[in-house]
Design a protein around this nucleic acid. Sequence first.
DNA 1: ACTATGTTGCACACGCATGTGCAACATAGT
DNA 2: ACTATGTTGCACATGCGTGTGCAACATAGT
Lengths: 204, 204
Amino acid sequence: MPTRPARSDARANRAGILDAARSTLAHDPHASVDVIARSAGLSRRTLYGHFDDRDALIREIIVTGAQRFNAIAESITDADSRIALARLAARLWQEAAHVQFAAALALDEAHVEHTAAALAPLRRAVASLVQRGQEDGGFRTDVAAPTLARLIEEVARTVVSRTDASSSGAADLAVRTVLSIAGLSWRETDELLAAHPDITEIPA
Amino acid sequence: MPTRPARSDARANRAGILDAARSTLAHDPHASVDVIARSAGLSRRTLYGHFDDRDALIREIIVTGAQRFNAIAESITDADSRIALARLAARLWQEAAHVQFAAALALDEAHVEHTAAALAPLRRAVASLVQRGQEDGGFRTDVAAPTLARLIEEVARTVVSRTDASSSGAADLAVRTVLSIAGLSWRETDELLAAHPDITEIPA
DNA sequence: ACTATGTTGCACACGCATGTGCAACATAGT
DNA sequence: ACTATGTTGCACATGCGTGTGCAACATAGT
């Protein structure tokens, strides 16, 4: 028997809870269900009407967020590995609202496992990108590929979660940081970004 | 009236609690008092005999840790800012046991403030080092000094807290990562470290 | 061996968060 | 206007962590 569509306000409230959870948990991964619900303008009891569990709520945020990240990872097609990495960082940054909570949650013991599984495609993309970068001489080779891939992930996570996303130039900083870790000197990064202004451009 | 010296086993237990707290909290900043006490081979009740409070315990770890870090920061005298930064990173890394918990605690909302205050001297040292590095052309200038200083701190914190300190070459990785953020290309870092093998050398 | 000093387990009070049941109330959709 | 669907506050059970009091036990230091 097909469940009949939910009432419009209920759908809006559900979405509101997800939004509130994203921004609240980004600031504090241990935020209580009550705080999340209140920040969505709803009661705790109502939240439990939409989600079985605190965990069910978090799982849904992780899954939908991961889908966006993975889609972005697969959309990067630049031949130059340096450009590809820069673009990946910039695109992910534009998803700030979704990224920040993910970065925070990924550090939380309780959800590390699930988050890692959901982000497997993104991780694979980074790994192969790093390998390609080392082969074509774009990236550093003083660090083994798997280590470098992990380093890039960790540092990207840090920059994302500890930077005020609203401040101007934040995306630019994130991109430059990631390229630095990949081994580029700052002057090389400067030239690269100057030659490809579309990367850090804010979409209309 | 001068308090008479504590019994030897009591002193040892107190030190054991501090050690256990350092390693336990490094892994999980929210570890309970019971877990810390048990990991020190003592009962929860005993821990409360040595420290008024969970907070008092943590405060003591932060303060003693900060003292070591600040002392290291002040011991760096290299004229070349790049070498100075490399040596600072390497020396701090050698304090792994003390550093890892600090990195974890510094991320914990509850103690951010206190940790920041205790580490003010270290922070000042990094700030002036960055400024000097930008002036003598050793570091990147595409990022403003205060931003670069903060970036270095954050990334160093990340590498320290998310790397297995026991794995060989971990210190080397930490140093290389920090220099990358400062703007050096990996080849420049390679040359620098080759010319100054004492930096990443393990002390006898 | 004696005793001051430590340690332990157990009981308790307390606070905070999760998750559920229920009755009263509000409103979207017709 | 009617009603199925949502929302709310309140009570309640449960679990976990903190911090304390106390009596029994262990031992370092003499």
